[in-house]
Design a protein around this nucleic acid. Structure first.
Length: 546
RNA sequence: GCGCCUGUAGCUCAGGGGAUAGAGCAUCUGCCUUCUAAGCAGGUGGCCGGGGGUUCGAAUCCCUCCAGGCGCGCCA
């Protein structure tokens, strides 16, 4: 149940009845700052004071009588002008029962029913292993996609492969070098070269597969062959690494698909709009017309399309596939957002449908020194190394604790030491404690399927936990609106905290007090279901024991 | 120089113009004969980068300065 939405609606209704030409703003109904202020609070009276020329306290007093509702036990106007809403205990228990019956339905809404969303993420260049830096889009994109699914959207997850660019050729040149070195004992270093160890790995894998010796081919043919091979090799590795983080795609889109006339057609469409011009042998997009810093090249002197031209075509294709919403998860080093959106507007697409989540880059430190990562120098920490050191759960959790527009800094040493104080364990431990309680209950012969007709909760720690559960739908919806998975992570830590408190205060399995025991077992079972759903959203495991 | 992001406790970070600025970690003090102490309770710790402005009210919005990151290719 989304109480914020409900309350905002009620307040707007009151404003209308009073003929006050004023509309509430989303932030005006929010969770109360502390438990003594109830569950939800509004600052509407404070905002009305000036218009109505009355004190906020007076206004609060005049609104309260109009707001009676079965959901709330108490609606209180404070002298300083807040209105605090206290959820009714009976209603809270009703919410618990609903959460138990169908946790997914309890947590979500059907906002996206019948709608289609495409979400594209990671899409790293297959010119090397996926690194700690470019993997960040993985957990973010995957969790956002999970949220869309939760809220009823038909969700497609896409990985875009740049299989046409010069960087693939550079990789092939590098692999070719190693093959020549291996077979001939010597080779000329190509002008463009990737120094990483993985390049040798590709060369060795190629030779092991008993391929016809590339050395008999002319250079051009050899490079073409090796481009293909290296690309597929790296893609397999990337998807294997992502698989360990439980990241999967419903489809892969290859840039080469666009080069069968679609890209040329897209450029023609832009030209038809008068948005391109020829200069110095290249075809330019007149993006300054829309406020861009400078015009952008679409077709180079040699006639080959730029990355931007490809991406405009790719997004045109996304739009033409008919989604209600298109989400791009981009690293901060992607700089062509502006001209891309200009082009799409020009092509007649609704920009509002396209949401771009830009995440800031990852910075690694060791002994206080930043480790600079670069594929071209071969210096980087691969995602694989990180997963091997700290496991997939901690890896995902680290990526998901920070807001995407926050730089992600972490120290290699502290992260590699598998620190048991990592916050992911705090939340997971709460979960395993729940599971421990249920095991104990079962061992003592209690019936876990039994749901009492009357549930009684008297301890403060119990009601606090129940209230936290009741607030979750609002919290999740907020995380969804903002496409901010890290808020879910925070909620899990918060929920864990409230549970640990409950655990200390309230003995659950207690044969001397069967009624209290049954109510608490029910509560723990609901919590298990809720936490499972939240961990699933984050793609993090729910261990039985730790 | 221009554009985007950031600056909040010792560290990593939450915080939708409103009530006394929060969490985890670290540190100090207590708590295991009871469902896992990877926990709980309590203490220490803050000119919310500086300055100005808007407002009844600013960590939050605007301007400016300082500091850091990223981008500013006929690379992808």
């Amino acid at each position: 149940m989304l109480y914020k939405e409900y309350l905002q609606h009620e307040l707007d209704k009151w404003l209308q009845e009073q003929n006050i030409d004023f509309h509430t703003q989303p932030g005006w109904v929010d969770f109360s700052k502390e438990l003594s202020f109830g569950d939800y609070s509004t600052t509407l009276p404070l905002n009305l004071a000036k218009i109505l020329k009355k004190s906020p306290g007076q206004i609060a007093n005049s609104i309260v009588p109009a707001l009676s509702s079965a959901f709330f036990e108490k609606i209180e106007a404070t002298p300083n002008g807040y209105i605090n809403f206290f959820l009714h205990p009976d209603h809270l228990i009703q919410q618990l029962r609903e959460a138990n019956a169908d946790p997914i339905h309890f947590l979500s809404t059907t906002t996206g029913a019948g709608k289609k969303v495409l979400i594209e993420y990671v899409s790293c260049n297959p010119t090397g292993p996926i690194t700690v830096a470019n993997a960040r889009g993985g957990p973010i994109g995957d969790t956002i996609a999970n949220m869309y699914t939760l809220f009823g959207y038909h969700t497609e997850r896409e990985f875009y492969v740049n299989d046409m660019g010069s960087k693939i050729r550079k990789l092939a040149e590098s692999v070719f070098y190693h093959i020549q070195l291996k077979l001939n004992g010597s080779a000329a270093l190509p002008e463009e070269f990737y120094p990483g160890e993985y390049v040798q790995e590709i060369a060795e894998a190629y030779l092991q597969e008993d391929k016809p010796s590339v050395l008999t081919l002319d250079r051009q043919q050899a490079i073409t062959l090796l481009s293909q091979y290296s690309l597929e090799f790296m893609l397999r590795k990337i998807f294997l690494d992502l698989d360990d983080l439980h990241i999967h795609f419903t489809q892969i889109f290859r840039e080469s698909e666009l080069h069968k006339g679609y890209l040329a057609e897209t450029i023609q469409l832009l030209t038809d709009k008068g948005a391109t011009y020829q200069q110095e042998g290249a075809l330019w997009f007149r993006s300054t017309q829309f406020g861009d810093d400078k015009d952008r090249v679409l077709l180079r002197k040699d006639g080959s399309p730029t990355y931007l031209a490809g991406d405009i075509s790719y997004h045109r294709n996304k739009f033409e596939r008919g989604y209600d919403r298109i989400v791009d998860i981009w690293g901060a080093d992607q700089s062509h957002q502006k001209p891309l959106k200009f082009a799409l507007r020009l092509l007649g697409f609704d920009e509002e449908k396209l949401l771009t989540v830009v995440f800031q880059l990852v910075h690694l430190f060791k002994d206080g020194q930043e480790l600079k990562m670069s594929k071209s120098t071969g210096a980087f920490i691969s995602l694989r190394e990180l997963i091997d050191e700290i496991g997939p759960d901690v890896t995902r959790f680290i990526y998901l604790t920070r807001s995407h527009d926050q730089h992600l800094n972490f120290d290699v040493e502290t992260t590699k030491s598998h620190d048991p104080k990592n916050p992911v364990f705090y939340a997971q431990y709460a979960f395993t404690r729940c599971k421990g309680i249920l095991r104990e209950a079962r061992d003592k012969g209690l019936d876990l399927t039994f749901i009492p007709d009357t549930l009684t909760f008297t301890d403060q720690a119990e009601t606090d936990l129940i209230r936290k559960i009741a607030h979750l739908p609002d919290k999740l919806f907020r995380a969804f609106e903002l496409l901010s998975p890290h808020l879910i992570t925070m909620d899990l830590i918060d929920l864990g905290n409230t549970f640990h408190l409950f655990y200390e205060h309230c003995r659950v399995v207690d044969l001397q007090n069967p009624e209290t025991s049954q109510s608490r077992i029910f509560l723990v079972q609901v919590l298990v279901k809720i936490m499972t759903a939240l961990f699933q959203l984050l793609g993090i495991d729910t261990p039985e024991r730790m």
